[in-house]
Every structure is written in C-alpha cells, then in structure tokens.
Lab assay of single mutants.
Amino acid sequence: NQASVVANQLIPINTALTLVMMRSEVVTPVGIPAEDIPRLVSMQVSRAVPLGTTLMPDMVKGYA
C-alpha cells in the first residue's frame, strides 16, 4: 500500500506548503504520493485543505 500526502492541519487557500503541514498516511483513495513531499514544499494550495484531507494533484498549484 502506498502512502499519500495528508494535511496535518487546516491549510488556507493560497498557502505555501511547509513540511509541518503534511504527513504521510495510507489512505483511500490514493492522493499525491508521500515521496513527493519534498517537491511540494513552497508550492501553494489552490483551495482550503481541511485537517486530515488527502492532497490530490489538482489541489496544489503547479504540481500536476
């Protein structure tokens, strides 16, 4: 089972991601792979992401 990136806190719209905002977790459906966490740092979210939400490619500007 592949771990995905999950929000560790509420991430407001247009916030630049930092390591403390993200954790890896095995979830369904699968989201952005956990190994991409270093690449996500400083990228902005395109919408508010609630705590515990799996990050999907369309939620991060410039990821897809």
Rank of each mutant, 00 (worst) to 15 (best):
N1A: 15
Q2H: 11
Q2P: 15
A3E: 15
V5L: 03
V5H: 00
V5P: 01
A7V: 09
A7S: 15
I11Q: 01
I11F: 02
I11P: 00
P12H: 06
N14S: 13
N14P: 01
N14R: 06
T15H: 05
T15F: 09
A16Q: 12
A16F: 07
L17K: 00
T18D: 05
T18L: 04
L19A: 08
L19T: 09
V20M: 15
V20N: 12
V20W: 12
M22P: 00
M22Y: 02
M22T: 01
R23N: 04
R23F: 04
S24W: 08
S24L: 07
S24H: 09
E25T: 07
V26T: 11
V26F: 11
V26S: 15
T28A: 14
T28Y: 13
P29Q: 07
P29L: 07
V30D: 15
V30W: 10
G31H: 01
G31M: 03
G31F: 02
I32V: 07
I32C: 03
I32P: 00
I32R: 00
I32L: 06
I32K: 00
I32E: 00
P33N: 13
P33D: 07
P33T: 12
P33K: 07
A34M: 12
A34H: 15
E35N: 10
E35Y: 08
D36L: 08
D36V: 09
D36P: 00
D36M: 14
P38V: 13
R39M: 11
R39K: 13
L40H: 01
L40A: 00
L40Y: 02
S42C: 13
M43K: 10
M43T: 04
Q44V: 11
Q44C: 15
Q44Y: 14
V45M: 11
V45T: 12
S46Y: 14
S46Q: 13
A48Q: 12
V49C: 15
V49G: 01
L51A: 15
G52D: 07
T53D: 10
L55P: 01
M56Q: 09
M56L: 14
P57G: 11
P57F: 08
P57R: 11
D58T: 13
M59G: 04
M59C: 05
M59Q: 05
V60N: 01
K61C: 14
K61P: 07
K61Y: 06
G62M: 08
G62S: 11
Y63I: 04
Y63V: 03
Y63A: 03
A64Y: 04
